[in-house]
Amino acid sequence: MSLDLATTRRIAKLARIGLEDAELEATTQKLNSILGWIDQLAEVNVDGVPPMVGTETEALRQREDVVNDGNCRDALLACAPETAGPFYTVPKVVE
């Protein structure tokens, strides 16, 4: 399989990475050179093989339902590039 420019543009949009038109071509080329190599995976027979999800050494551990975190607004907001009072801010979103 190989990518065309439109696909790269769509992928970049999905990943929210702004690509200049000038970068589009080089990026597509780079991805295609990797994809060409990756395609050798097609030759492996995986009939009846379950996918390995994580390393599955144990079953999921569960925590008790207790409130023992949060209440650290100042520390959190101090890391933000922009805030307004107790809030994070973003350009106005219209729904």
């Binding site: 925590r63 207790v66 409130v67 975190d69 949060g70 650290c72 607004r73 959190l76 009072g85 107790p86």
Partner: peptide, 24 residues
């Protein structure tokens, strides 16, 4: 529930903005 699905922050309705938020 008292705390969130994947963190220990409170689920109480109507708390001060961003106070019931953990690093997670």
């Amino acid at each position: 529930s008292h705390s969130k699905l994947f963190s220990g922050a409170s689920t109480t309705f109507g708390g001060d903005p961003n106070t019931q938020v953990s690093l997670v």
